[in-house]
Amino acid sequence: MEWLIPVVLLAGLLALALRSRLAASYRAWRAQQEREQVEDALKHLLNREHQGRHASPESLSGALGLSRAQTVRLIERMEAQGLLQSRAEQLHLTPAGERWALNVLRAHRLWERYLADEARMPLAQIHAEAHRREHTLSEAEVEALEANLGYPQQDPHGDPIPDRAGEMPSRASCPLTDWPTDEPGRIVHIEDEPAVAYQQIAAAGLKLGQTVRVLERTPQRLTISDGENEYRLAPAIAANVSVSPLLPTERVFDGDALPLSKLPLHREGEVVQIDPALQGLTRRRLLDLGLTVGATVRPEMQTFVGEPRAYRVRGTLIALRKEQADHILVRPIAHY
């Protein structure tokens, strides 16, 4: 039975090694859970402050889905860390807390940008995915992500992305419901929460960067137009769409401009705009191929199913699917 001794020893060592590893991964998991909770709480407080209201223990427990006792423990812990102060049932962010909160917001919006532009995830799904990922990066990693994306200013919903110091560029905007009738405005923000409202807006076909004007407003609905299509939205939904005045450089295209996908075969057109909502990889590819504003394009071939179509651009023949060509606005060139 002497051979049993080394076997038992080996088994014991193995068990010990496994336990310490298990314990370590459990600790790491706990730390991650705590970080997520703290960061979600910070985001809630920041959100409230941006709305001009103050957070309370009740609002916090509601937002995070925690019990009263858990909320109290969380608040105590965060107070001890110097992230918030509670005064008279109101929770206030300390400067340190605000800085951290802005960093989480920054990570969230950068992730949304990445998921939308580079991973090409459907817009309706990116909020939830970014929410999961915002807690996983260190500050240096967030910076690398930002540099990789080319320092974007806005997330795909039009919200500004805070920079490293927490500064946020702001742009005057107002909800569609308060926008004057018949005044052209550019959609600069589509609120992604609640998701139901966002999906309705997306289903109607409204996009960030679109130039629209309000045609008619009744208590039941708003009728808006982008010059080509009309959209009808309930006021409660339309309140989630913000517009801002056009900058002098943003020209309004009407009548004669049309998507490249609708330009008839063998008809020349001049590119007047690439949809601002189209960012990331796809936009870079189009620019690389010479589809810049002012370039001349001519559809030359299409397959028997109608797409993709091949376009002559700067002497080369380039095939695009309808989805890509839809984002390129051209003005047909008249031939005399």
Binding site: R120, P122, Q125, T282, L286, M301, I318, E323, Q324
Partner: peptide, 14 residues
């Protein structure tokens, strides 16, 4: 691999 079809560009050389 959920996601939308992206960046389809295809050069048709002479």
């Amino acid at each position: 691999l959920r996601g939308e079809a992206s960046a389809f560009t295809l050069e048709l050389p002479p």
